[in-house]
């Protein structure tokens, strides 16, 4: 595990990309989880809390996806480019697990 972290930290720019992707996915899950929870609540105070959290979650997701687009990690408008990035990421992930 420690050598794994060392490997990761040894490739700083890639680590940033991996972490940003992980955060983006977490924030996406947050938006979904909160939306579902809102439809299951009956108490107005709880509903309001969940709505506020949902607004924050959408903000976080928006900021992260904009950051990733600026950095060239995320190309929603260009499938070909996105595929190249994803394949490169997959290669790196495979090489990390192989040695």
């Amino acid at each position: 595990m420690n050598s794994f972290i060392e490997k990761l930290t040894g490739m700083a720019p890639l680590t940033d990309q991996v972490i940003a992707t992980d955060l983006l996915m977490a924030s996406k899950t947050a938006v979904r989880n909160y939306s579902l929870a809102i439809t299951e609540t009956a108490t107005p105070e709880i509903r309001q809390t969940l709505i506020n959290h949902l607004e924050d979650a959408i903000d976080t997701h928006r900021k992260l996806s904009k950051y990733m687009m600026e950095k060239g990690y995320y190309h929603p408008q260009d499938t070909q480019k996105q595929l190249e990035v994803d394949l490169r990421t997959a290669e790196t992930a495979l090489s990390l697990s192989n040695d």
């Binding site: 680590t15 947050a30 009956a42 709880i46």
Partner: peptide, 28 residues
């Protein structure tokens, strides 16, 4: 039902917070 939903969100958020706190150290 509500308390189960809240429990699930609390677990999810705690996980996110731990991850963000730890991973912050690795970011350049």
């Amino acid at each position: 039902h509500e308390s189960l939903e809240l429990h699930e969100l609390l677990t999810f958020k705690s996980l996110c917070l731990t991850k963000s706190t730890v991973m912050q150290a690795l970011v350049t």
